[in-house]
Design a protein around this nucleic acid. Structure first.
Length: 587
RNA sequence: GCUCCCAUAGUUCAAUGGAUAGAAUAUUGGUCUCCGGAACCGACGAUUUGGGUUCGAAUCCCGAUGGGAGCGCCA
């Protein structure tokens, strides 16, 4: 088999570095800085000449010429055209035969995954979704679920062993208030559906909160309920369990719709008998100290956390989420032997996670435990139309269930307007895939660290840079294959691909960039790079489709173009799979 | 009060210190006897402000203005 790099960016980077250092005698610290470039310049560009020229006191253009000459004389130079441009850029334009070889070499998602195995043997816990029980999921819960799932898929694609953990908020002080109010209202809720029960519980909680805010005795009773629950009072425990059961049944409907799955659902309550060890060890190691009656951790060298405490045991002796989070890190290390933990939460929790990571580092180091790599993959706040964060307490945030069903209904209306001959089942499946896909994609498209302006129109849009546009491109490719009477996934001998028309070449060049995009998304755990890329790819495909007949009379042309379509299909599908968005053969 | 984040077309978002700042939407002009028009091709339109660093700044640093968030017993 001919040598064919999977990721041209990485390959060119290594190649240029090597040649520049060995043949041009540049110093070892030379960094070529190879980046994908705008199509008008080529496929990749080398930016590293400037920095090196500066350091060595040479004119960049001169150094560029010298390096270019050496590159042109080296093995591998036939794979691309190179030219010196501007003040000292070196541009690389991949030669068409090299593109064709790449397309013939990397045909299936399996081929990609195998070639991209960056993380084999690595165990990564992804901690995402994590709603609180006793409340319905609303738009504020969307991002963690969607982004976390995409990141887990991405890590899995690169060969990691991924453990998806839904760390539910099922053990907070909210249960004191809930138990108190439930007891006082004596409600009969056993016959309600999970959703109805949950809605009822939300109201109970609201009334309970109001009561504790206005009455000191209500507050006392709520505290007593919490203590009773924590001490294992059977009646309270039974009620608490029931609340969690109906809550999760309601969450599960959303997860099913969104096609999100977890390997573990270990809520905070799972760690409630593991927090003693955390406090003991941190105290004995001299990391935690008493302060104002609580057990806290300060980080003396930190400008902020030398003053701002990380409270691991409240004055009343109870633990909080800092304590359970510490216990969780240890559990994931000791039981699951993870190498890394990725937390996907709102950016407002950055202080908490920074303190958590600092504390875990000192604790693990003092005890000689191996510390996993800890990453807080945070995302921007979901804001309402008023620009302020959507909160459960202020007004009524839109429920995910409502959001999804509205999107599905809009998709269904479009299908209806086309007057198709689909069966009811098919139609239902398609409107679900389109509607849910639109919402997930709408979220993923945005750089996760940006704040998020919620709007119905944006969420439910089915035109422009949206999932349906991508799904449509996929469906059209399937339609071509149906018409040709060929299975796009049939494992057969691959046909020779000849890129002749400009639109074919443009498509081939774009396909080639997929590995670079995946690596970029992986480096920062930012799925939106994949969205941008597959959207552009679908656009280039549409242009190609519009200008170039695939089902050509000439057999060789037909087979070549069909193969090109098959590669486009593979990459669109692969990208959508990583994003957790469904694909359709017909829509 | 202290700390952090953000400011890009009318609107919603992109842009790894790289060349002429990209999309979508809205507005608007076109394409279509042909593989699915949920399509394709155009036009219009933007880096809040004042300094600085750099060969090169939307991006880094300092200030101003405007917005958001966090900060001892919620998670």
């Amino acid at each position: 088999m001919r040598m064919c790099p999977f990721d041209f960016q990485r390959f060119i980077d290594g190649w240029v570095r090597n040649v520049a250092i060995s043949a041009c005698h540049l110093s070892e610290d030379f960094d070529p800085q190879i980046l994908p470039s705008e199509p008008r310049f080529g496929d990749f560009q080398c930016n590293g000449i400037f920095a090196h020229a500066k350091r060595s006191g040479i004119v960049p253009r001169q150094l560029g010429e010298q390096v270019l000459k050496a590159l042109q004389a080296s093995d591998g130079a036939h794979l691309w055209d190179m030219s010196l441009a501007g003040a000292g850029f070196i541009n690389f334009k991949i030669a068409i035969p090299a593109i064709e070889t790449w397309l013939e070499t990397y045909a299936t998602e399996e081929d990609f995954s195998k070639a991209a195995g960056d993380l084999p043997g690595k165990t990564v816990v992804v901690d995402y979704s994590c709603p609180n029980t006793a409340k319905q999921m609303h738009v504020g819960h969307l991002r963690s679920m969607v982004i976390g799932d995409a990141i887990a898929n991405l890590l899995e694609f690169f060969g990691a062993r991924v453990i998806r953990d839904n760390h539910l908020g099922d053990w907070g002080t909210q249960f004191g208030i809930l138990l108190m109010q439930l007891r006082e209202e004596k409600l009969q809720m056993e016959n309600l559906s999970p959703d109805e029960a949950l809605e009822c519980l939300e109201n109970v909680y609201r009334r309970g909160t109001q009561a504790t805010q206005t009455s000191e005795s209500a507050m006392e009773r709520a505290r007593a309920e919490l203590v009773a629950l924590q001490n294992g009072d059977p009646e309270r425990v039974a009620t608490w369990k029931w609340i969690n059961t109906v809550s999760y049944a309601s969450f599960q409907e959303i997860y099913d719709l969104a096609r999100v799955k977890f390997d573990h659902v270990l809520g905070e309550s799972f760690y409630r008998d593991k927090v003693g060890r955390v406090c003991d060890e941190l105290s004995k190691c001299g990391i935690a100290e008493e302060s104002e009656g609580a057990l806290v951790v300060f980080h003396r060298d930190h400008p902020r956390f030398c003053q701002q405490p990380f409270i691991i045991r409240k004055r009343d002796g109870a633990s909080n989420y800092a304590t359970t989070d510490l216990a969780t890190v240890l559990h994931r290390r000791e039981e699951w032997h993870c190498d890394e933990i990725v937390y996907v939460t709102d950016g407002r929790q950055r202080d908490h996670f920074e303190q958590l990571f600092l504390t875990a580092k000192r604790w693990f180091s003092a005890k000689g435990y191996a510390l996993p790599v800890l990453k807080h993959v945070w995302f921007g706040t979901v804001c309402g139309e008023d620009g302020k964060a959507i909160k459960t307490r202020s007004g009524e945030p839109i429920r995910l269930k409502t959001l999804f069903s509205e999107a599905i209904q809009r998709a269904d209306e479009i299908i209806a307007s086309k007057g198709t001959d689909l069966t009811a089942d098919e139609r239902m499946r398609i409107s679900r895939t389109v509607g849910v896909g639109a919402i997930k994609y709408g979220d993923l498209l945005q750089n996760r660290t940006s704040d998020y302006a919620f709007s119905w129109d944006k969420m439910l849009s089915l035109e422009g840079n949206t999932a349906p546009y991508l799904q449509y491109a996929v469906a059209r490719i399937y339609a071509i294959f149906r018409r040709a009477g060929i299975d796009p996934d049939a494992p057969g001998k691959s046909h020779k691909i000849h890129l002749l028309e400009p639109q074919e070449i443009a498509l081939g060049r774009k396909l080639l960039l997929y590995p670079c995009v995946l690596h970029q998304a992986l480096a920062d755990l930012r799925p939106h790079f994949i969205c941008t890329y597959i959207y552009e790819l679908a656009g280039i495909f549409s242009t190609f489709y519009n200008s170039t007949k695939v089902l050509d009379e000439d057999q060789q042309t037909l087979l070549s173009r069909l193969s090109l379509c098959a590669r486009t299909l593979t990459i669109l599908r692969s990208g959508l799979n990583i994003l957790g968005i469904g694909v359709l053969e017909k829509m």
